[in-house]
Design a protein around this nucleic acid. Structure first.
Lengths: 149, 149
DNA sequence: GTTGTTGCAAACAGTTTGCACGAAA
DNA sequence: TTTCGTGCAAACTGTTTGCAACAAC
């Protein structure tokens, strides 16, 4: 059994409309375009870069900022940290997933498994915190960027 | 045996000078002040907030930005994500550690254990990546902010 | 004395906000 | 028709850079 993304896939694109409606938001052409851009970009985009692309379609950058925030809230976008610490936003296709990124070319691989529930329980016991969640990012070099030895 | 920070503590403050020298950097009063500020702040600071504090001592904000980067490179500072996604920098007292933050008051607890080596090996096998490291953050509510039930 | 570091100011980049117009429900 | 979303521009915040004076070595 693989630990890669596979099961429990998020509602496909045509359900995006309903996701917006559930939050009381409208589903506009702009919002669909913005989601399409990220969804088709395996390495994601920083917001300024995405706004640059979307400007070609006449979408203003303020709209991009506003929509990325909403898509984050909906769990559709997830960020990873660039080399320089910038946030790059990547489409998320599973309800709980993490990202493995290549520090050289930026390629992103999504994975679902993480054995952190035990750690969360221990931390809760030792600290008294109510643990609500975790953020995990893996980084390294992808097969193409890795020295071939 | 606790999973909290305890063992393998980083060189204490008087060795900070040597850490800078190892990288060919000078150890100035400003750099010491900046480290002191973070080191004494359990919840850390965003850079603008830290710069605000340090301005009282006549330290310019450009110096704060430059020094925080260096302290990061030295492994002395580590960031956590604020509620709004801002980076808050926290002093790190162990060579490998992660942060558990309270989403309400911002309190930060440092911990060392994380059982991620197995996951890293599996991911390497499945993806062909050479895994170089991981970033893990836990978040929740601290005992003071947690509803008392 | 040499060279890296600082503070200042200015430039720059990233993000948010106000508002009249337009589009979704 | 009502209300929310959009684009534009302006304001704002965060970050970097150039440079002369200064301090660490």
């Amino acid at each position: 059994m693989s630990i890669m993304k596979s099961s429990k896939t998020i509602d496909p694109a045509d359900n995006l409309k309903q996701s917006f409606h559930k939050l009381g938001h409208r589903f506009t052409n702009q919002r669909e375009s913005i989601w399409q851009l990220f969804s088709n970009a395996p390495n994601g985009y920083t917001i300024p870069d995405a706004a640059g692309e979307l400007k070609k379609k006449g979408i203003g950058h303020a709209t991009v900022y506003r929509t990325v925030k909403t898509l984050q809230k909906l769990g559709r976008l997830h960020w990873v940290h660039d080399e320089n610490g910038e946030h790059r936003f990547v489409a998320r296709h599973a309800s709980h997933s993490h990202m493995l990124t290549c520090r050289s070319c930026g390629q992103v691989v999504e994975f679902e498994s993480c054995n952190l529930t035990l750690l969360e329980k221990l931390l809760a016991l030792e600290t008294g915190y109510r643990i609500e969640g975790h953020d995990l990012e893996m980084h390294g070099l992808c097969p193409q960027c890795r020295p071939s030895n």
